[in-house]
């Protein structure tokens, strides 16, 4: 599923955000990516999401070399990867439904299909009653569930989450984690970057730790 070989990411000025990372995540696994702020968690997710290319090394996603994708192919890859952020990244004035449907609109699916799949995804995260609300008028937990529904509506093979509980209180954080567990149970590979030790210790999943851009053994 995810295969990273000797991946290094450095920025102008010689700052090395990731150094010689080799990481394998098999299909269907749930992995926590931990580390202090600035350890390189977000950079690693950005590379997996093709937001930035690695400086050195190879990244294979589902057998495809992400480091060598043409620019035009990146959107197609992203449609197979769900992404969830700490700050939700929703269109605030659009409704909960429209935010989820956006991931299907970009694919040009027929209207009826968009309606069906977005409604299913919203039902799955328990937001069908709130679907007409503008995203900005929903709670933080609801916004994160909207973002999860948007990430899952395309039935991605990989879900990446960057500090998904960072803006949520503990109870809501657990609700969100339960959703991730259910996603994983459907067969989706899940990679959650977090510095929340409580979450990591609560769930029996593999943990990969980063420190100053290097993987800890």
């Amino acid at each position: 599923m995810i295969q990273m070989y000797h991946v290094t990411k450095s920025y102008p000025g010689g700052v090395e955000a990731l150094v010689d990372i080799t990481l394998h995540v098999p299909r269907g696994e749930f992995v926590f990516l931990t580390g202090a702020s600035g350890a390189g968690k977000t950079t690693l997710l950005k590379l997996l999401f093709c937001a930035e290319p690695p400086t050195r090394g190879q990244i294979l996603l589902n057998g495809r070399n992400a480091a060598r994708l043409r620019r035009a192919a990146i959107p197609l890859l992203r449609r197979q990867i769900g992404m969830v952020f700490q700050d939700f990244r929703l269109l605030p004035r659009r409704s909960v439904f429209e935010n989820v449907a956006l991931a299907l609109e970009v694919m040009g699916l027929p209207r009826r299909e968009i309606r069906r799949r977005a409604s299913e995804a919203l039902a799955w995260v328990g937001l069908e009653a709130r679907q007409a609300q503008p995203a900005i008028r929903t709670s933080g937990g609801e916004q994160q569930r909207t973002a999860i529904a948007r990430a899952l509506v395309n039935e991605p093979y990989l879900l990446l989450a960057d500090e998904p509980t960072g803006n949520l209180d503990p109870d809501i954080s657990l609700e969100v984690m339960e959703l991730f567990k259910r996603v994983n149970a459907r067969g989706t590979t899940v990679l959650v970057a977090t510095h929340n030790r409580d979450l990591v210790t609560r769930y029996p999943f593999r943990t990969v730790a980063l420190e100053k851009g290097r993987l800890l053994a």
Binding site: P75, R79, M83, L90, L102, V106
Partner: peptide, 16 residues
Amino acid sequence: REETEILQLVGATRSF
């Protein structure tokens, strides 16, 4: 800009 980032996130093409 923010909306554009979100569109890129969900796999929108440049033309979209």
